[in-house]
């Protein structure tokens, strides 16, 4: 190897072959690990999705699981909830994160380092910690209601965990609290790559702050926005922790997500692994479609 590489001429001839083998060397560890710990289980669970049964005994069920899925009111409810989160939470969070990032990108603002960390901090907490906090803060008699009552925003306590609408709002608040700072970090980093001369020129042309944001920042950030929205889509469709730990999926399944329902089918109810596998392939399918749509919408055929 070494002699080949030292002679420029020979190397030139064998670039293709050399490239191939060295490239494989670098990616091999990852590929083996992904193969064993992701792809094999994925295939195995795909086969499982055509079976049904209880406990440890399974039999082939063809498309029976899919038929069952279409009649499963809890699944349909979970699908609906997941879409509500997707439609409301992802845009709210992305817009908020972009706004915060552009505010923090202003060099005239003091204590930027402090604000940046403060806003990033929520995503550092563990999910167990965060769900304990939120559950108690948003109890009927909890801190949040006490404060809202004290400043006269509401006349009576909001039934955060008891009302289907407010429970969804609570999930959206929790998600936004936890992940906005994380996304903000991506935008802020990307903004710092935008040359200040663009903004300078825009100001001279009389563009106001919003116009600068709309016509300079957003277009230049498109790849990052795409990346974060695809990641958030995956995250939302696989949403589990918040539903499981904060609202327990209730009231009356009003906040249950698809992943949470899979968990119930696996570990709360009498387990049916075949059916659970079928439901999880629904998620894969949806994520793939949504990611594709997002790529098309942003007019970018290459990954960010």
């Amino acid at each position: 190897m070494k002699t080949i590489r030292q002679s420029g001429l020979v190397r030139h001839h064998s670039t293709a072959g050399f490239h191939r083998s060295t490239g494989w060397m670098f990616v091999s560890f990852a590929l083996i690990l992904v193969g064993v710990f992701s792809i094999y289980p994925v295939i195995s669970s795909f086969l499982l999705s055509f079976q049904t049964g209880r406990g440890a005994v399974y039999h082939f069920n063809g498309l029976g699981n899919i038929q069952r899925l279409l009649k499963d009111t809890v699944f349909l409810q979970a699908l609906k909830n997941t879409f509500v989160y997707f439609i409301f939470q992802v845009p709210i969070m992305i817009i908020l994160a972009l706004t915060i990032a552009s505010v923090l990108n202003n060099p005239k603002l003091k204590f930027r380092g402090f604000f940046r960390i403060a806003i990033f901090l929520p995503c550092v907490t563990s999910l167990v910690a965060y769900s304990v906090l939120f559950k108690s803060m948003f109890a009927l008699d909890g801190l949040v209601n006490r404060m809202l009552l004290a400043i006269n925003v509401v006349a009576e306590p909001i039934p955060w965990l008891l009302d289907p609408f407010w429970a969804k709002v609570l999930i959206i608040i929790a998600l936004t609290w936890r992940w906005t700072g994380y996304n903000m970090m991506f935008y802020l980093s990307a903004m710092q790559n935008i040359s200040p001369s663009y903004y300078e020129a825009a100001r001279i042309d009389g563009a106001n702050a919003f116009q600068q944001f709309r016509y300079i920042t957003v277009p230049l950030l498109k790849p990052v926005i795409l990346f974060t929205s695809v990641m958030s889509t995956i995250g939302t469709l696989q949403l589990f922790d918040e539903s499981m730990n904060i609202t327990g999926g209730g009231p009356a399944n009003a906040t249950i997500t698809i992943s949470h329902y899979i968990y119930n089918v696996l570990f709360r109810f009498t387990p049916n692994f075949g059916y659970a596998a079928t439901i999880s392939y629904v998620i894969v399918f949806l994520v793939a479609i949504l990611a594709f749509v997002q790529f098309k919408l942003t007019g970018d055929d290459h990954a960010a």
Binding site: G23, V42, L237, L266
Partner: peptide, 30 residues
């Protein structure tokens, strides 16, 4: 490796890897 030594097969594998991200963990647990 994927970026510095690009080749057709590895690009395909890479796309496949990205797809595996979409599978919920509960599905592969067993």
């Amino acid at each position: 490796g994927f970026e510095m030594y690009r080749n057709r097969h590895r690009e395909r594998l890479y796309a496949f890897l990205l797809l595996t991200m979409m599978i919920p963990f509960a599905a592969v647990m067993i």
